[in-house]
């Protein structure tokens, strides 16, 4: 039997080049380059004020970049935004659901705005509500929802028109740890089941490490390093020995646990071994912590 092997070519969904946004004299982002391919799960990790939200806004048409180019599937987004807007889904930093509308009405509004054919609307909306676990709250006004419920609603709303790329701006900020896990599961499910490319911004190290297969680290409006979280950490060595000196903690990096253990034995101070995190990567490059 002949086996036809299809070499699937992974296409670039999004390419951004030299994105700059200035608000008056304030430069919010300063030459951002990004590339996202189909099915990617990419993180944009950086401290508050680094320019994450501005980047997302510039990529989704909420803010006009001062300089730079944005292409979706090779098409110029800044010149012809309508085309690309059809396959962009956005979950903004604030859950911008309509408080006065019910969950169903919120989704119905989205289905009109995105020109989903009328006969398909109802079925898609019911499916979305189920995916978000909100089917029992279908006809409740959103102002009665908890923070986690609103987040889930915004998430499935952004998916309703089946985008090719989903932007998530700090999707779990302000949520309880339990609810955060719940949202993480939902996000992973979206990426895996639907094969949707995701660009997620966060200032939580753990979130970026858990979810993203590749990451851009951003500080003061510039990308300072990019790569998969594993590679970035390996480049640092993989293991850290924290040496507790009298007035400070000194960190030494090792590429294997054994090397770190050997050093620990001969070290005359109190010591602790832990794995390298993206925070270490950030500290090494900027001299400061992501979360102050």
């Amino acid at each position: 039997m002949a086996v036809t092997e299809t070499v699937k070519q992974v296409k670039n969904v999004l390419e951004a080049e030299g994105l700059v946004k200035r608000f008056g004299s304030k430069t919010a982002i300063d030459g951002i380059d990004l590339r996202i391919r189909e099915g990617d799960f990419t993180g944009l990790l950086g401290p508050n004020g680094a320019g994450k939200t501005t980047t997302i806004k510039a990529l989704t048409g909420l803010v006009k970049p001062t300089e730079g180019k944005v292409h979706y599937y090779g098409n110029d987004f800044l010149r012809h935004p309508m085309e690309a807007k059809r396959f962009i889904g956005v979950v903004p930093q604030q859950s911008n659901v309509d408080r006065d509308l019910t969950a169903y009405e919120n989704l119905y509004l989205h289905s009109i705005l995105h020109a989903i054919p009328r006969p398909l609307r109802r079925g898609k909306i019911e499916e979305s509500l189920e995916f978000a676990g909100l089917q029992d709250y279908r006809d409740r006004q959103v102002k009665t929802f908890s923070g986690g419920m609103k987040r889930r609603l915004v998430l499935v709303r952004a998916l309703l028109h089946e985008p090719k790329i989903l932007f998530l701006d700090e999707p779990t900020v302000g949520l309880d740890p339990q609810i955060r896990k719940n949202i993480w599961e939902l996000i992973l499910k979206i990426n895996q089941q639907k094969g949707m490319a995701i660009l997620l911004t966060t200032h939580y190290i753990e979130e970026a490490e858990k979810l993203c297969r590749s990451a851009y680290i951003i500080d003061k409006g510039k990308i300072i390093v990019e790569g998969s979280p594993d590679d970035l950490k390996k480049d640092m060595g993989g293991y850290v020995l924290e040496v507790f000196l009298e007035d400070r903690v000194e960190e030494e990096f090792f590429s294997s646990k054994d090397d770190a253990l050997a050093r620990l034995k001969e070290c005359g101070h109190a010591c602790k071994i832990r794995q390298v995190t993206l925070e270490d990567v950030f500290i090494k490059l900027t001299g400061k912590r992501i979360n102050v």
Partner: peptide, 18 residues
């Protein structure tokens, strides 16, 4: 209110509508 407090207006701006 929809623009500054609830950011609902962004839903219109993000959608493929003129």
């Amino acid at each position: 209110i929809t623009r500054f407090y609830f950011h609902v207006f962004d839903e219109f701006l993000i959608a493929p509508i003129s």
